[in-house]
């Protein structure tokens, strides 16, 4: 019975897009609110996690837009608390991944998420180049992107003397393979 109710397949609504990308049917949510109650950052969010699901269910373009422009989708830490506690086993962290990707595709990411996105991009830059994370490159790329030049300046020497900052990057042999994987994955996902 339930499957007949959830035949959202059109990708012109955000709920349809999420279903297509992740296989998660947001229509399953009956608004118990456990996700919002357990979310460690719900109080920092502009829209609570359960409200995000409700807005998607309504399939209205203006609400879809509001979801994609929200700060919430970028504050989700993927701690998996909501998914673990959801009585309908809705994989909300996966929904959030899909919403973030769509928000970037439409270039409507919340201005306050700028630093978070800059960090993720800088992180991937390092992997694309070296195959592994090169923490010094990550921090430099992040500072250039965000212009937070002074942040953590006093932390670096403390980490260095403790041997926690590796000055030499770990370069894998398959770097060209990694570059190809990045290219092909981005072609697939936009």
């Amino acid at each position: 019975m339930s499957s007949a109710l959830h035949t959202v397949s059109a990708t012109d609504t955000l709920a349809g897009r999420v279903l297509h990308d992740t296989g998660v049917a947001v229509a399953e949510c009956y608004q118990c609110g456990k996700c919002s109650a357990g979310c460690p950052l719900a109080d920092e969010m502009d829209i609570t996690p359960s409200q995000i699901l409700r807005m998607l269910q309504l399939e209205m373009p203006e609400l879809d837009d509001e979801v994609l422009r929200s700060h919430t989708i970028w504050l989700c830490l993927t701690c998996e608390m909501c998914y673990a506690r959801c009585p309908k086993e809705i994989d909300l962290p996966k929904v959030m991944d899909s919403l973030r990707a769509e928000s970037l595709r439409r270039k409507v990411a919340h201005p306050k998420a700028r630093d978070i996105i800059a960090f993720h991009k800088s992180f991937l830059d390092s992997i694309r180049t070296c195959g592994r994370l090169y923490e010094i490159l990550l921090i430099v790329a992040y500072k250039v992107r965000t212009r937070h030049l002074l942040q953590d300046l006093l932390m670096a020497p403390k980490l260095f003397v403790r041997g926690k900052l590796n000055p030499i990057p770990e370069l894998i042999r398959g770097r060209s393979h990694m570059a190809r994987i990045f290219q092909r994955a981005q072609r697939k996902d936009g």
Binding site: S98, R100, F119, H120, F123, S126, I127, R173
Partner: peptide
């Protein structure tokens, strides 16, 4: 042998296919 980064939070936040490929 020759392992790469798993992509961590960054990959699955930005690109689904990449977050599985790594």
């Amino acid at each position: 042998p020759d392992w790469n980064c798993c992509g961590a939070t960054a990959a699955h936040n930005l690109n689904h296919a990449l977050s599985l490929s790594l």
